[in-house]
Each structure stands twice: as structure tokens, then as C-alpha cells.
Design a protein around this nucleic acid. Structure first.
Length: 388
DNA sequence: CGATGAATAT
DNA sequence: CATATTCATC
């Protein structure tokens, strides 16, 4: 067997190797969902070694250590306690699901912005990794033979928002995709997670009356597309459901679904601030609107403010939130751009001119500014929120 | 009418 | 909560 070789290569004895394997397994067990096979393999390896050991040599087995090993008997699935068991119990089925999750709590709490992070991840968490994605044709086998029992399924995973990768890929996408206007149809580039692919009509369709529509599941992929569309359309405020849907190019998606999603998006987008505010440090100027796209987050803030901010019509976002993407604004691509942008501008202007009924009354933050005042070359740049 | 956005419903 | 559906407008 392979492990034997490996073991010898490592110059270890069976016991040590087993030990190592068990440690490995402990680690793997933490990510049952993403490393199901690995776990299985390691377990088998351990088993094999044990047999080997008992048969061939004298070494006493000195395992028993690590709490997490144990019960190797053949292929007991083990674990379970590690899994965030969530079952999809109450979760209405979302097409199919499955998906990987990405935890790693990376971006801990980078100093301040604890608050901002909070809500930030709220919305993010809610949608971004909402999850589920149908297994897409491509990915074939996704289910793990042995222990598939638990799968936290879609709704479950409440892990952290992004990751390096996530951020990266997202950024890339937003930057590269937007301008390139993506590909015509059907191509379902998305990594790993696929979402409704054309092909399958499947969704609803028939069923006579009544029947409340099946809940649409906004998987990451779906949401991603949604975001892309928004970008291309120049922001949530200027985008309209229909356009979005068209840009998303997702087969079964309906206008209403998009509309609904958009509504939610806007809600979360528009100052979740207000209340969450509290001790918030006036320091972090949360978001800005560059061109017609929101850029957010402390980290970017710095850059954004220094760069983009001054030249463009950076207007303080109404309390923008979200927009994990930092795209450059008006650079829009070919297809839908022209019009949409204009539209965006208009809308924005509108906002300013009439101090709109809605919003406003919230700015609060702008005030205080206790931090390094003067000097800030860029002066106002961000923060300012004229009208409202 | 269809598209939209806000308000409800589930 | 996150969606779906309804209501009122444009």
C-alpha cells in the first residue's frame, strides 16, 4: 500500500506513522465537509498500519493519546461532533445543495472596525455564503460515499464571509469580468459551485395554481452574478430587476425573484448603520461611493479615499454597505453600460437635489469627526454626505 | 399591461 | 431571517 511506502520514506516506524496519521486525522476532522475523502483515506491508512503493525512487529501500540483518535474499527464515520450539524431541517429545499464552505476565521477583528464588521458580515453572511448550489453537472460526484449523513447543508453554515481566496476571486471577477462583459451564454464559469444551469427546466413550471413558488435559493454563485449585474448596471439604485435578471443570465430566474433579492439587498445596503451605530468609532468612515459603486470597508477605505475619492464624484454613500467588490466605477463595459450609467447618475443627482424623503435623518456620523482633523489633504473627500 | 418599489405574508 | 406575494404607481 501506498502508506507503507510513505511511511518508510518518512523513516518512521509504524507507531510513529500511525501517530502522525492520527494527528492528521484530527486536523482533518475539523473540516469534514471539505475534506471528506481525506478523512476517509487517513482513517483507512491508520487501519492498515495498525494491522500491519500488529501482524509484523513487536512495538507496543502507544496510541491512546490524542483525544480525537480512537475507534478505528474499520470505517466508522467518526466525528459528527465537529460538524456544525445543522441539517437542513427547516430549510426549504434549495434545488440541490452541497457546497463547500470556507471557514477559517481569518480576518479576525482587525482592531477597530469591529462594529462595522459586525453588520458587514451580517449581510454578507446572509447572502454570500448562503450557499447551496446545485451540484452542477460538471462536478459529478460530490457526495462522499461513507459519511454523507451529516452535511450541514445549505442554510446551515454560518461561517465567515470571505477568505483570501474569496476576496481574491471576487476582486478578480469584478475587475476582469465586468469590463469584458463576460461570455455569451450558458458558460458557467463559476468555480466549484454551479447554480442553475440552463439545461434543467425543472424548477416550478407546471403545478397548477396555488403553490407558493419554491423558495429560490440565492447561492453564492447566484449572488455573485447578481452583484456583477449590479455593477454593470451601475449600482443597486440604478439597476432594475429586469436588467439585472438579464445580465445575470440565469436560466430559471424570474424578475420577481430578482426584485425581491434586490429589495433585500437595498435594505441591507442602506444604512444598517443607524442602529448599529452606537459606540462605533467615528473614525472609520464606512463607505464611499465611488462613481456609482460602493467601496467599503476600512481596509479599502484608505486606498479608496486617497485614490479615487478626490477625482471622482465621490459622494458619501448613503450608508452604503456591503459591496464586497471594489470596482472602479464608470468604466463599465459595452453591453448595458451606456444607459445604465446615465440612469445611475440621474438617480443619484436626484437624491441630492431633493433631500429625498426617505433616508437622511441618519447621517449622524458625519458630525463628530474626532480624529485627525485638519491636515487631511483630501479634505472632505469621503464622509461628506451632502443632502441627507 | 408590464415593470417597479414598498409593504406584507409565510 | 430570507424569500414570496400582494398592493399601488408609473
Amino acid at each position: 500500500m501506498y502508506f507503507i511506502e510513505q511511511m518508510q520514506r518518512l523513516n518512521m516506524g509504524f507507531s510513529d506513522y500511525i501517530k502522525a496519521l492520527e494527528e492528521e486525522r484530527c486536523k482533518i476532522q475539523v473540516f469534514p465537509k471539505e475534506l471528506p475523502l481525506s478523512l476517509e483515506l487517513v482513517t483507512q491508512a491508520i487501519e492498515a498500519c495498525r494491522q500491519q503493525l500488529s501482524g509484523t512487529t513487536t512495538e507496543y501500540n502507544l496510541n491512546g493519546h490524542s483525544e480525537c483518535s480512537e475507534q478505528t474499527t474499520s470505517e466508522g464515520p467518526v466525528l459528527e461532533e465537529f460538524i456544525p450539524i445543522k441539517k437542513r431541517a427547516s430549510t426549504p429545499y434549495c434545488d440541490e445543495d452541497d457546497e463547500d464552505e470556507q471557514h477559517s476565521h481569518k480576518q479576525k477583528v482587525s482592531k477597530d472596525n469591529k462594529n462595522s464588521d459586525k453588520w458587514k458580515s451580517d449581510w454578507l453572511r446572509s447572502v454570500q455564503l448562503w450557499n447551496p448550489d446545485p451540484p452542477a453537472e460538471e462536478d459529478v460526484t460530490r457526495n462522499v460515499p461513507v459519511m454523507d449523513l451529516k452535511r450541514s447543508g445549505s442554510g446551515g453554515g454560518a461561517f465567515q464571509p470571505f477568505h483570501k481566496e474569496d476576496n481574491a476571486s471576487r476582486a478578480n471577477e469584478s475587475l476582469s469580468l465586468a469590463p469584458s462583459s463576460k461570455v455569451p451564454a450558458t458558460s458557467v464559469p463559476m468555480t466549484g459551485t454551479g447554480e442553475e444551469n440552463a439545461g434543467s427546466g425543472k424548477r416550478e413550471e407546471k403545478e397548477k395554481e396555488g403553490q407558493r413558488k419554491q423558495r429560490r435559493c440565492w447561492s453564492q454563485d447566484l449572488h455573485k452574478r447578481f452583484l456583477h449585474a449590479l455593477q454593470q448596471l451601475g449600482g443597486a439604485d440604478s439597476a432594475t430587476p429586469k436588467q439585472i435578471r438579464e445580465l445575470m443570465n440565469v436560466d430559471g430566474l424570474t424578475n420577481d425573484e430578482v426584485k425581491s433579492h434586490l429589495q433585500k439587498y437595498r435594505l441591507h445596503t442602506r444604512r444598517p448603520n443607524t442602529i448599529v451605530h452606537n459606540s462605533a468609532n467615528p473614525q472609520t468612515a464606512p463607505f464611499l461611493l465611488v462613481g456609482n459603486i460602493f467601496v467599503q470597508s476600512p481596509e479599502y477605505a484608505a486606498v479608496a479615499t486617497s485614490t479615487a475619492s478626490r477625482e471622482m464624484n465621490t459622494v458619501a454613500a448613503p450608508a452604503g454597505i456591503y459591496a464586497p467588490v471594489a470596482t472602479h466605477p464608470p468604466a463599465v463595459s459595452h453591453p448595458p453600460p451606456a444607459v445604465s450609467i446615465k440612469k445611475a447618475e440621474f438617480k443619484k443627482v436626484e437624491l441630492f437635489e431633493h433631500s429625498n424623503s426617505e433616508e437622511r435623518a441618519i447621517h449622524s456620523e458625519g458630525a463628530v469627526h474626532s480624529n485627525s482633523p485638519a491636515s487631511s489633504s483630501s479634505t472632505h473627500t469621503t464622509t461628506t454626505s451632502p443632502g441627507y
